[in-house]
Design a protein around this nucleic acid. Structure first.
Length: 780
DNA sequence: GAGTTTGAAACT
DNA sequence: CAGTTTCAAACTC
């Protein structure tokens, strides 16, 4: 509807066509066709767009897509937008969507401003939730590449035009306007107000042009209005990371100019993200101006989404996935919806099941890092963490509902798009950093929640209280988690804020340089992700393990002082703890060795054995199966006994970071993997991963590969589980996670690892937690 | 809320 | 790489 008009306005030719009856006709048709196309044309693309991880296609597609999209965008976008609008038009987006959309907006908006391309606000439409399916189709229509395209539909262009028309025409307008409102600039523009500098220009010819070119790519997001607005405001406030983006959106042309700074933030993000993906988006950051490559945008957008799971499966694919995710988000699919579809499609396509993906509407991008730290922590400190990303997202995250979700680190590269969104619920999202200063204001309540409410403890959301480290050291939970400090934090002299992105980033890099795994999750939980989702064996770590063992002496590994305990995993050979009583499972080196041996022998049979604390073992062994299933991974449980040991790890290879870092560790890992592989047989791939991976990872991987079975806790899980399929840990973990985190974390992790994480990291990135969560959800 | 304990991180 | 110091979380009162 609107789109056509707008399109016409923007693009004379196109618009004309649009105006024509034919156009209308097409529009009508488009919705349907798109679907077909989506599905048909490329199952891949279609899937991808959906969620599917089809990776290769995805990756490749982006560029192609972009072009196509751009093209399409002009012509088709209008249509699409229309169709979407029509479809969704009536409806406001669902909240969930909105949230996502919002994020997208933020990103897009910013982008658009800078680039002048499009604003996204309206895009929200896509989500328009009405049709999950429809949307995809739409996307497809718009652009074969669905991935990117979906968003396109929404382009600011369209929006503007739409707005105009809408103003004249429809009730929809309201919604639209709202959307627009999200981004003040756009809105203004639409209204005719031109508060925004850039907008003005843009509005003119440029919009069309820009839009056509870049915008096409740009995703239109719809933000569900209210939420978006909220988000926007928040963002504006927060401005730091995302804030600037928002601000831009809001119409500050200046901002765009400023963009650089903000851009810096973006850059940072890019770096992080890009680091992985750089190839794709090198352009993007060119400083403010330009547009952020659609991909990035998409990425950003997507990341938030839960798409991650897909990524999960295939690392390389991840992006594609992300994008896809973005699309979905853009599409505004409710997570659920998307998930459904995606699931179906995905399952069909490549997916390996990434059920979680589905479930996860929102990924946790930031995963990587310290999710474990935050998330894992029993209390639910879950924070999402992406590195820095969090900063970016904040606004977005906030937007959602009460800001319940904060995406912490969407942007963070590490996450590589892995940004995790955390449901505020848990941590109150608060976790995320995001926003910081400003946000704090608005958020404060949340923060309170976080601290008090959230977690079981109330601490869950609690943030750091650094005094001397300026929150730029691993001492700082936030920093370690890869998130910006936010209100909840009681830190002093904090530099871990979006404003100081550069510093944060550089510091982070330094630390990573020193210790590549520094930001990797301390504990990797394999089981969760992989098994349950069934997804990626590769990426997912099979069992959780300590990145490096604890060194507890007095706490007996029974207190949170113990990282293992805190992470809900049993101690492993890597641990140097004394008088270990880790309830999750403890492994002595000797026992491990023995186990390994056994495992080797058994693995063939069962693939693994469980070991456990001496005492626990007895108990556990019996249980394994039953207990495992029943038992929540969560630490507290005695399950520990049940915990399986990882076969391989055995020995003590100290999972030294160095090894892991170097990625060399493999040998041992390889062994483990081998065994694991044998277990699973199927996936050896893990081996490769393993190679790259640190021991921990390996372990994780192996477990994954072998089985979901592997419990998160490496130790716990033993390959044998495979049979069991589920390690207790997982379950436990899942359960816990579920509460805390509603949505699945996106798999972002992989891609994400972003800055912090390297390849190996990436693996880590996928936060076990998340995975676990997903898994958990799925399983249940 | 203040003080103590604890163990990781950082430093040498 | 090992030992020491610094730091902030975890814990206790």
């Amino acid at each position: 509807m609107d789109t056509p008009d707008r399109a016409a306005a923007q693009q004379p030719p196109a618009s004309r066509a649009e105006d024509s009856p034919v156009f209308s006709f097409i529009n009508n048709l488009s919705p349907i066709e798109p679907l077909k196309s989506a599905y048909n044309a490329n199952s891949l693309q279609g899937y991808q767009s959906i969620n599917i991880t089809s990776i290769s296609s995805i990756f490749t597609s982006p560029h192609d897509n972009v072009h196509k999209e751009t093209r399409l965008a002009k012509s088709s976008l209008g249509e699409i937008s229309e169709s979407e609008a029509s479809a969704g038009g009536s409806k406001t987006n669902k909240p969930a969507r909105s949230s996502n959309a919002v994020r997208l907006f933020a990103c897009t908006s910013t982008i658009t401003q800078e680039t002048h391309t499009v604003t996204c606000s309206d895009v929200a439409d896509p989500p328009t939730g009405p049709c999950d399916l429809a949307q995809p189709a739409q996307f497809d229509n718009g652009s074969p590449d669905h991935n990117t395209t979906p968003c396109h539909g929404v382009r600011s262009d369209l929006k503007q035009d739409k707005c105009r028309k809408l103003d004249a025409v429809q009730a929809v307008k309201n919604t639209v306007e709202k959307r627009k409102c999200l981004f003040s600039t756009e809105i203004q523009l639409l209204d005719g107000g031109q508060p925004v500098n850039d907008s003005d220009d843009v509005l003119g010819c440029e919009w069309s042009d820009l839009i056509s070119t870049t915008s096409g790519e740009l995703l239109a997001f719809d933000s569900t209005m209210d939420d978006h607005h909220r988000g926007m405001h928040l963002a504006a406030k927060n401005a730091e990371s995302c804030g600037y983006l928002l601000s831009k959106l809001t119409g500050d042309s200046e901002i765009s100019g400023r963009a650089h700074p903000s851009a810096s933030g973006q850059v940072y993000y890019q770096e992080l993200v890009m680091g992985e993906d750089q190839t794709e988006n090198p352009q993007i950051f060119q400083v403010g101006q330009q547009t952020i490559s659609t991909e990035e945008i998409q990425d950003n957008i997507y990341e938030p989404n839960g798409c991650i799971p897909l990524d999960y499966k295939v690392e390389s694919q991840q992006r594609g996935i992300r994008r896809r995710c973005l699309v979905f988000e853009a599409a505004g699919f409710s997570n659920t919806v998307v998930q459904k579809e995606t699931v179906e499609s995905l399952s069909v396509s490549t997916c390996k099941g990434k059920s979680h993906v589905q479930t996860q509407p929102r990924g946790l991008r930031g995963i990587g890092l310290h999710l474990n730290a935050l998330a894992l922590t029993p209390k639910g400190k879950m924070a999402s963490q992406d590195h820095m990303a969090s900063g970016l997202r904040p606004s977005l995250a906030e937007k959602d509902v009460h800001g319940k979700f904060l995406s912490a680190g969407e942007n963070f590269p590490n996450s590589g798009g892995e940004l995790l969104e955390f449901p505020m619920d848990d941590c109150s999202a608060g976790g995320f950093p995001v926003n910081d200063h400003v946000s704090s204001q608005s958020v404060s309540p949340q923060k309170k929640r976080r601290k008090t409410d959230n977690g079981d403890d109330g601490e869950a959301c609690k943030r750091c209280s650094c005094k001397k480290s300026k929150c730029l050291k691993l001492y700082c939970e936030c920093f370690a988690a890869g998130v910006y400090c936010s209100e909840p934090c009681s830190c002093q002299g904090c530099l871990n804020k979006p404003i100081h992105e550069e510093i944060v980033l550089s510091t982070r890099k330094q630390i990573e340089f020193r210790n590549p795994l520094a930001f990797a999750p301390k504990v990797i939980r394999m089981s969760d992700a992989g098994p349950e989702t069934g997804e990626d064996p590769n990426s997912t770590p099979a069992s959780a393990r300590h990145k490096r063992g604890c060194n507890c002496k007095k706490s007996s590994c029974l207190k949170k002082y113990c990282e293992c305990y805190q992470g809900g995993v049993g101690c492993s050979s890597n641990c140097r703890c004394e008088s270990c009583k880790n309830t999750f499972g403890r492994r002595d080196a000797d026992s491990e060795l023995i186990e390994e041996i056994k495992q080797e022998g058994e693995q063939t049979e069962n693939c693994g054995k469980e070991k456990e604390n001496d005492q626990q073992k007895a108990n556990v062994q019996n249980e394994d199966h039953p207990l495992l299933d029943l038992v929540p991974i969560t630490p507290p449980f005695d399950l520990s006994s049940s915990l399986l040991k990882l076969p391989n790890f055995s020995s003590a290879k100290p999972p030294r970071p160095s090894k892991a870092r170097s990625g060399n560790s493999r040998s041992s890992a390889s062994k483990a993997t081998a065994t694991l592989q044998s277990c699973k047989s199927s996936k050896v791939a893990g081996s490769a991963i393993d190679e790259g991976m640190p021991d921990i990872l390996k372990e994780a991987d192996s477990p994954n590969n072998c089985v979901k079975t592997t419990s998160p806790n490496g130790k716990r899980v033993s390959p044998p589980h495979n049979a069991l399929s589920i390690s207790p840990n997982r379950k436990g973990g899942r359960k816990l996670i579920l509460k805390s985190i509603p949505s699945f974390p996106s798999l972002m992790g992989e891609s994400n690892s972003g800055s912090a994480m390297n390849d190996t990291d990436n693996t880590f990135n996928v936060s076990p937690l998340v995975l676990g969560k997903h898994c958990f959800c799925l399983c249940r």
